[in-house]
Nucleic acid binder design. Structure first.
Lengths: 108, 108
DNA sequence: TGCTAATATAACTGAATGATTATATAATCG
DNA sequence: CGATTATATAATCATTCAGTTATATTAGCA
């Protein structure tokens, strides 16, 4: 059996997802725990469409998962198919402070 | 002593360097062995200024080293300061075939 | 059923980016 | 020194991309 090798083009696409500060911060947040869109908007202090569009890219790229739970949609990290990202996620700075500063359930 | 934590902005900059197919291919080549500019131009079948500019970005980003040896300038991987890139480099597909196909010393 | 809250999509704009062409610099060699 | 080779830099152009504003969709709730 041959392990499927990730192509250069495919890896470049994935790296592009991690090459934006906003997206990388979202991933650092999701490393701590799953979050809904409004959580992320509050913490990053930007607009909702901005976050929504970044999340869509991350989802399309297979890096995050989406689950609707009544009116909220929760996003979480999906690292399973990209082992070469493990090390990067581990090195992402902790967002604990920012998450704690954001009082829970302020939106959801 | 506090281990210096890589900032999100800094990581995003580094990821941007890996988010281009041409640059990622160059890195895959350098994983096999150091190379001069003309080697890379020959193998990737593109223009010399194109490769030269990509190499400059990689050098500025601290991912490759440069050594002049008479008229040729050799580039090599510099992974030392970015441990979170190890896993990625390991997963870069092998370029052995392409390197072997390119007859050595055809330019340098 | 209508209202509100959460999220997504669309259209637009300014900035960044990769490739190309043309030119400059630097080193070797006759 | 002049010619040639290797590499870098500059200028230009078309494309891509992140963020904003405006609008649409979806779900809960009164």
């Amino acid at each position: 059996m041959v392990l499927s090798e990730t192509s250069i083009a495919e890896m470049a696409e994935t790296m592009k997802l991690l090459s934006d500060k906003t997206r990388l911060t979202i991933l650092a947040l999701l490393k701590e725990r799953e979050m809904c869109v409004c959580d992320i908007v509050d913490i990053l202090e930007t607009t909702q469409p901005n976050i929504s569009q970044h999340l869509k890219k991350l989802k399309t790229g297979g890096i995050v998962n989406e689950t609707r739970r009544s009116q909220w949609i929760y996003y979480s990290l999906n690292m399973s198919d990209k082992p070469y990202l493990h090390e990067i996620f581990i090195h992402l700075p902790s967002m604990k402070d920012k998450i704690d500063a954001h009082k829970p359930n302020s939106c959801c």
